[in-house]
């Protein structure tokens, strides 16, 4: 279990993490979602004591990370797929980490096996592809058989096979009762991996909820095509819905189920010729959540049209 209380980090006058409080529970995969620059990596570094919070605190199973007697058995972390010396072999990189805890060379070979690196273990890690670097980072995270696993953008650079492998890995780790915390800036990735989501934008938590709730939170609306749209509009507004009018006979109704809308039309004898529930995709829900919190917003591209 990882608990952050009023965690804040500022660099000069720039607040990167702004008074965030959250608890990451064991036994499920918690996704940490936010645009680039939202404060995800800084938060993860603070969990591991690599960055010192400006204020607030974060603990792992009740203690600061550095106060544990065998930190690698508490938390395994992948923060950066390139964080190794390029001239050192993968096996020696892991062996150096393992030696700090008296972890056996046999366990090193085990995690090399597990991450599919056994055959390249003796090669210079500098020649590894980004995907192999990710695997080496994950191997390092698993070394201590830790109770919590923190992975920063673990699927970056992985081939489709590797992406599936990471999803399966996260699932398995959570099913074994471990705390699994992984970040991504891609909603679609989180949708397939996480049980619970913490959404962060500009250093603040925008949402902290089960993934299903985040989906529903986007709200579903119903597209209605109806003759005499103004009559139906008045009817559903009276029932508490909010309505946007579109072209021709279109209405976009939020706050009522399709059946209730159809009922209202039937009562007034109005002819409905389309009734389409519009479930917000996770991607849309995410964009909706973070729209005001994206640090670098791109301008809409307008075609010149020739």
């Amino acid at each position: 279990m990882i608990e952050a209380r009023n965690l804040t980090k500022t660099y000069g006058d720039k607040t990167v993490v702004d008074d965030i409080t959250f608890t990451i529970q064991p036994g499920r995969v918690t996704g940490f979602l936010g645009p680039n620059g939202a404060g995800k990596s800084t938060t993860m570094r603070m969990i591991l004591g690599l960055d010192t919070p400006t204020s607030g605190s974060v603990t792992v199973d009740g203690r600061h990370y550095g106060q544990h007697r065998a930190p690698l058995q508490e938390v395994g972390a992948l923060l950066d797929a390139r964080a190794f010396h390029p001239s050192r072999s993968a096996r020696n990189h892991l062996l150096a980490m393992a030696t700090t805890h008296g972890i056996s060379a046999r366990r090193v070979d085990e995690v090399l096996q597990l991450t599919g690196l056994a055959e390249v273990a003796g090669r210079r890690a500098g020649n590894f592809s980004l995907g192999m670097g990710q695997r080496l980072g994950i191997a390092g995270a698993l070394l201590g058989d830790p109770k919590s696993v923190i992975l920063d953008e673990p699927v970056n650079g992985l081939d489709p096979d590797g992406v599936l492998w990471v999803r399966h890995l996260a699932r398995t780790l959570a099913d074994e009762g471990r705390t699994v915390f992984l970040s991504s800036h891609l909603m679609s990735e989180m949708a397939q991996t996480a049980d619970h989501l913490i959404v962060i934008g500009r250093g603040r938590i925008i949402a902290d909820a089960p993934i299903a709730d985040i989906l529903a939170g986007g709200g579903h609306r119903t597209l209605v095509r109806v003759e005499q749209q103004e009559l139906l509009q008045a009817a559903v507004v009276a029932m508490g819905a909010t309505v946007q009018t579109g072209d021709d006979d279109e209405l976009l109704v939020a706050g009522l189920e399709p059946r209730e809308i159809a009922g209202a039309a039937l009562d007034r004898g109005l002819l409905i010729y389309e009734l389409t529930p519009q479930r917000a995709s996770l991607e849309e829900a995410y964009m909706e959540l973070t729209r005001d919190d994206v640090e670098y917003q791109s301008l809409a591209l307008t075609g010149k049209g020739n």
């Binding site: 004591g49 690599l50 550095g66 930190p71 690698l72 923060l79 950066d80 964080a83 990189h93």
Partner: peptide, 9 residues
């Protein structure tokens, strides 16, 4: 970072 993750002191 891996170094100080393995040995935070």
């Amino acid at each position: 970072r891996p170094t100080l993750t393995a040995a935070p002191m």
